[in-house]
Amino acid sequence: MKRWIWIALAALAVSPAISSAATVGVGVFGGTSIPIVQEDNDRGPMYGLRVPINLTPIVSIEPYYGSTQGGDKNETVAGVTYTRAGIDNTAFGVHVLFMFGTGVQFYPFVGLASNHLKRDGLDESQTGYDFGLGFGFKLPVVGLSAHARGGANIVTSPASSETSRKWGEITLGVSYNFYHSVIP
């Protein structure tokens, strides 16, 4: 239920923006998610979908869906190795990107998301925050661009409101702008 509230809020937030946007696109991305100070969770692959909406030359908003499969973590106790399944993280959220440059762009970004954390014994939805830097450049096809990003995903911990689970994320992706507004 909470997830649908997030999606609805994101849709409301972007709907007026789309009508006045300079460009609207769709993109896919994939990469690696690396847990930070999580001794019960290991790195794993991630992938997702983005809808970049350029509002002005310097600000874009980007609703996104992301899915991470946490890697299994081994801990050895008295010579016996125990394996804990990694945490799978499904996120629906919005990024705000602050663009620098034209052909080759780089952009700091922030974001807010609903993150669903799941493994045996864990099934919780938590608020997440994203921070990072991205680089993008146009590909030799009209409307197509490639992106590389590094960032941090900080999700409030289900175990305590005073702590969080954190991941470093490195992704590569491509986006295609399918809508360009005609400026009179």
């Binding site: 001794e39 705000v96 602050f98 922030v110 005073e162 702590t163």
Partner: peptide, 20 residues
């Protein structure tokens, strides 16, 4: 703007400085 967002998050209970 992004720096302010990061600062705001850090100020709200330092959830960043934590681990499992």
């Amino acid at each position: 703007l992004p720096s302010l967002a990061l600062a705001a998050l850090t100020a709200t209970g330092c959830i960043i400085l934590s681990g499992q």
